[in-house]
Simulated assay, not measured.
Amino acid sequence: MRSPSSFFGVLFILALISGVHAGYDFFYFVLQWPGSYCDTSSGCCYPTYGKPPSNFGIHGLWPNYNNGSYPANCDPNNPFDVNKIQDLVSSLRTNWPSLACPSSDSTSFWQHEWDKHGTCSESVMDEHGYFQDALNLKSRINLLQYLQSAGISPNNAFYSLTNIKSAIKTGTGHTPWIECNKDASGNYQLYQVYICIDHAGTTLIDCPVFPTGACGSSIKFPTF
């Protein structure tokens, strides 16, 4: 007789083969402040098509599970194809630029995000839908406006982490997660903002779980 442990082991393997591993519960929509990406000891490189706008840019739309884990690289048989999103490239260059070095046209950044994260949302959206949904969310979520309306501007000053979260919650209706990095002097600064989105990738929701990480109680908002 097969033992219970081996039986469930077989079920687990069958689940992986059938693609159940590609399921997810919600998305993190992650927006990045370019000034904080660049204001580090390693610096940054502008895209080959020029300096991005002084605004938050998209880092990714990441499927996640309610327990805090996430699927990744779910379908190697559906690799990124820039030809499928040619009508979005102009908007992606503005709203989803790469600041990594060496300079690039950002295509490799989009490829990484689709291959690692986007392929895990194929049950809901194809490649074009994935990038279109992210751009739609970006057009609806104006983080810089929310912050400036609360007197929080990218001027190298330090602001209360509590006030930053409050300003974004006022604008979106939901509490965000704030990720910090450190500048060359070791100061915590506003780096990325996580907003939670429903399974369909369209509606803002309260986050089922937050990431982990440290920020100071007062953090820098650098210029760009």
Rank of each mutant, 00 (worst) to 15 (best):
I168G: 03
K116I: 10
M125W: 03
S185F: 13
S121A: 15
S123V: 12
F131D: 01
L88A: 03
M125F: 10
S108F: 03
D105Y: 00
S104L: 09
L61I: 05
F109Y: 14
W62C: 01
I168M: 08
S54K: 11
G173I: 08
P63S: 08
D75W: 04
N142C: 00
A150H: 08
E113A: 07
Y49A: 12
P102Q: 04
Y46V: 04
H59K: 04
F131A: 00
Y65K: 10
L144E: 15
L161T: 13
G50C: 06
S149W: 00
S106M: 08
N163Y: 05
P154R: 11
V124N: 03
S108E: 11
G129L: 05
I178P: 02
E122Y: 08
W62H: 03
G118Q: 05
G151P: 02
S54Q: 06
P53S: 14
S121L: 11
K165A: 05
N156Q: 04
S153Q: 13
L137P: 13
T48L: 13
S166D: 12
T175C: 04
Y70A: 06
V124F: 09
N155C: 11
K169M: 14
N156W: 03
T48P: 05
L99D: 04
T48E: 12
I178C: 02
K51I: 06
P102Y: 09
S54M: 00
I85F: 02
F109K: 09
P76S: 14
S166Q: 15
C120T: 12
N66C: 01
R93V: 04
P79V: 02
P52L: 02
L147E: 06
D87H: 06
P154C: 07
G68Q: 06
T107M: 10
S103V: 05
T170S: 15
L147G: 01
K116Y: 01
D81H: 02
